[in-house]
Design a binder for these strands. Sequence first.
DNA 1: TCTGGGGTCCTACAGCCA
DNA 2: TCTGTGGCTGTAGGACCC
Length: 344
Amino acid sequence: MRRILHIDMDAFFAAVEQKRCPELIGRPVVIGGSGDPTKRGVVATASYEARKFGIHSALPLKTAYSLCPRAVFLPVDYEAYARESQKVKIILRSVTLAMEDVGIDEAFLDISEIGKPSGEISQLIKKAIKDETGLTCSIGIAPNKLLAKIASDMDKPDGLTVIMPEDILSILKPLPVRRLWGIGPKTEKSLKDMGIETVGELASLQMEALVDSFGPSYGNYLYHASRGIDDSPLITDWEPKSISRETTFQKDMASWQFIAKTLADLTKDVVTDMKDSSFKARTVTVKVRFSDFETVTRATTIPHATDREDEIRKAAFASLKRVELKKRVRLIGMRASHLERTDA
DNA sequence: TCTGGGGTCCTACAGCCA
DNA sequence: TCTGTGGCTGTAGGACCC
């Protein structure tokens, strides 16, 4: 039986801001976009005080402001959070190298090979993180990643939850399907239309029914996930498959010149990123989102991988020219993929 | 009404080729 | 020579994650 830990930092961005600015402690704090709630942007993290007003991640800043005008709105300072994240990851790697990074504020550890009780290891991690960063985390312990992630979410903040094999089904059964990793708003709605709202109800469906409704890959995943079955390994080393930049305009744009200038700027940023991380790319995809949220992509593949800005910009503009700009444009983005290492 | 940015993976389909 | 099949690659869109 594997022993997997999921470590999840509590309201991470807000906690970092409250640490460096202690007068924010105890106040509703909302981090997102440029920090100006009258501008376009969404909430990245809300402090627990702000969550009491119904503010949560992905909520438009304007909506968050209407829910709690007296909240403190701050811009995302990604570099500051990355520095704290680094400290946490160093602590986790000192426990075991069997660590999977899941974004800036989460990680999985496989502690199966460590000859100490899971609870003891978890308490040591929590104390080390608190001593080193002043921040708290919640930890879930379970036989696989799927369940460890559910466990870490069961007692927040500063919690520690163990799911024992004999308790898996009774814990899963009453949970709303949305709590399973991989079930988002669309699948939740599809399941609701089928009369399925809890993980227990999902587990009552036959494999054939799930495959019919959701396809072989996802249907199979849902069948097993609803039973708490997950054999997926930890991904300890990872290579990017694409590098991209996109930007949403403050106002929807009709000027081709302005859109083209923005695309050239995004290309420059992507190429800088590629060179910094020693990648060349073969495929350049341009993404355009119109004022009504319709989103189209156009891709151009060049015969050889390159990190030359002029070649990549040419491919980006070849892609852009294939988009009919019939409506005002809300967002423009570009992505480089089919990456190859330059030092390989 | 409003809906960011940086990613991954899956599906469907079309064209090419053996 | 014609037709069918299956693999591979590229393209486009969609769902999901943090």
